[in-house]
Every structure is written in C-alpha cells, then in structure tokens.
Design a protein around this nucleic acid. Structure first.
Lengths: 194, 194
DNA sequence: GTCTATACAGGGATAGAC
DNA sequence: GTCTATCCCTGTATAGAC
C-alpha cells in the first residue's frame, strides 16, 4: 500500500472511530487517545490529519450529513405514495439505529451553543437540510408547502424523534405522518400575507 | 442568621450558580469549584449539600421543572382563547430567555443517553410533563386530544424551539400554533383504534 | 456547616525521532 | 505519515481543621 493510500485509509479509520466514540461517550468523554487507538493509530497520526479535536468533530458531522442525504433520497424513491414518503422521513430519524445519530446531534448542539464558530457550521448544515426538504416539491407535488415550512418539518422530525427515544413507542407513525402532512401541504401556513 | 437559615440559603445559591454555569459552559465545562465560587462558597460546602456533581445536576433540573410548570400555568390562565393558549405554550419555549433552558436540556440529554439512571430520571420528568399537558383537557375543551398526543405536543414544542434557535425567526408563531392545534384537537390521530 | 489543602487521575496538544 | 514521550493544565472528591 502506497503512502497516499495509507493516508486516505487512516483518515477514514479516524472518522469512523471518532463517530463511534463521540456518540458513545460524548465529545468531552471521548479522548483523542481513545479515538486514535480504536482507529489502530496513535495521537500523532490524528493530529497529522486534523488540526484539533474540534476539526475532527466537524469532519465527522459533515460526512454524516452527506451519507444520510443519499440514503434518504433513495428511500423516498422507493415509496409509492405521499404517506409512504412521509413515513420514510419518519423512519429515517426514529429507527433504533438512529439513536447513535441523535446522541451525536445533542453533543453537537451543546457544543455549538457555546462556540460561535461551531454554531455557524451547525446553522449552515441545517440550512442545507432545509433546502433539501424544499426541493422535494420539484419531485413530488404533495411537498408544495415544504419550502415555506422546511424548518418546521425538520424541527418536528427532530422533536418527535427525541420523545420516541425517551419513551419508545410514545410516538406512532400515524402521528408523525399526519403532523408532517399538515406542514408540507400548506403553503400559506405562515399567515395570510399575500 | 441561624445555621439552619444559612444552610437553606447556601443550597439555593448553589442551585442558582449551577444552573447558570451548566447552561453557559456545559456540564463537563462547569467545574464544581467554579460553581461553588459563584455561589460565594467553596467545594467543601457543595459536597456538604450534594453527594456528587450528578446529584447537583438532577436537583437543578427538578427545580427548573417545578418553576416552569407554575409560570406556564399562570400564563395559560391569562390567555382568553384557544389560539392564545397555544401561543402561550410556544412563547414559553421560544422566547430568547429560554435559550438557557434549551442549552441545559441538550446537556441533560447527552448525559442521560449514556447513563441509565439519568435516563430514568429524564423519562420520569417527561412523563410528568405529558401528564400536565393531558390535564389541560380538564380545564379547556380544545385540549380534548392532548391526552393521546401529549408526547407529540412536547416533541413539537422542543423541535420547533431548536430550529428557532439555530435560525431565529425561521419558525413563526402561526406555524407553531397551527401544528399544535392539529395535535390537541384530534383524539383519533393515533389511528382508527376504537 | 464550611473552609483549606491535597490526593489522584485524566486529557489536549507538541517535539523530535524514524 | 506516524510513533513515542512528555509538558502542562484542569478536574473530582476527600480529610481534617475550625
């Protein structure tokens, strides 16, 4: 394996290890030593790839968003009606395997609230997500109101996922779908501003 | 001031200082030394009142819930129609001064996801909140569906508040009220289980 | 009931070797 | 590109004095 290939491999290993440990033990609880060790490398290698622990965190989150967008897009194509597509969105955030993501999301929020730079990056990521929701209208007519309410759509998904995590089963798919349906199909929900 | 009075005073000071610092710097970022110092005491006094940093955290959160329930109940009484009451709920979580609470909430979630005991206490607190929402039906008829959807109501409030924090103004009061209205007035939203 | 002093542990980041 | 060794800082919790 040439050095360049090893470098790419090391970066990937570090990102995976960091994602796992940040989710399991929190940002503060996951030491750079532990991350490097799980990746089969040492701290030296880690700092050769990322300037700081924070930069590593941002890289982890960015990679996660890209991966998820791809997966969700594919699942939306598989559904064959409006209900099915809304259910896909709910499934994406509520399935048990998303618990890891939710844990990481709370960590990032906690971190961002206190670090202006991190907050900017968090905001940029959500704006990107909102745009993705808005663009669903180009593909399916039932999302006609999604543009104006995209932040609310994401907020509802996030909030319901949280409740579902404290008490699994407390949120039914029907509840989620019906709430989302109200938001995506009402372009004028913001008020009667003509 | 007698010793008993001083003890009560010290406990109150510690709780206030802890709430402030946990919100400002995170649970991990707020040292017990800093908390004690802000309260005008020392670590010794802190450990005289709370067995550990975790116990202090739980006490802070419990106190916050009790205070908030009282405030929200009072504001609900002041509103004079259904829209107004839903707007009160939204105001309670979205006003700028609630940012501190939201920060603390993320901290607690991050903490709870990794600590089973803390998760139990978090769950118990949410169940208590859900019950409070359900009981609104006894007071106002428009909350007839709140019982079945209480977790969703709380989830929506939380999720929308989060979006409003990353991008202030992205969620209008109209959006929040309309979404909440769907949930509280639909006893059968869970599906056609008779 | 509260303070001071301290034991004890752990983490982020860097320097220099290979 | 990666490793080893180390600096330096900070934190939780306890012991014993007052």
């Amino acid at each position: 394996m040439r050095q360049q290939e090893r470098k790419i491999d090391t970066r990937a290993r570090l990102l995976t290890a960091a994602a796992d440990l940040f989710a399991e033990h929190g940002i503060a609880g996951a030491s750079v030593d532990a991350i490097a060790q799980r990746a089969g490398r040492t701290v030296g290698a880690l700092y050769g790839h990322f300037a700081s622990k924070d930069e590593l965190l941002f890289a982890v989150v960015d990679e996660w968003l890209a991966d998820t967008a791809t997966v969700v897009a594919a699942e939306l194509e598989l559904a064959d009606d409006a209900e099915g597509r809304l259910a896909s969105l709910w499934q994406a955030v509520s399935q048990p395997s998303s618990a890891r993501w939710l844990a990481l999301e709370h960590e990032v929020w906690s971190h961002a609230i206190r670090h202006p730079l991190a907050l900017d990056r968090l905001r940029a990521r959500y704006v990107e997500t909102w745009q993705g929701i808005a663009q669903l209208a180009d593909r399916w007519p039932e999302f006609s109101g999604a543009g104006a309410n995209a932040p609310a759509v994401v907020g509802v998904l996030l909030g319901l996922a949280m409740m579902n995590q404290v008490s699994p089963g407390s949120i039914t798919q029907e509840m989620a779908v019906r709430t989302l349906h109200l938001l995506i199909s009402s372009p004028d929900i913001q008020g009667a501003t003509p």
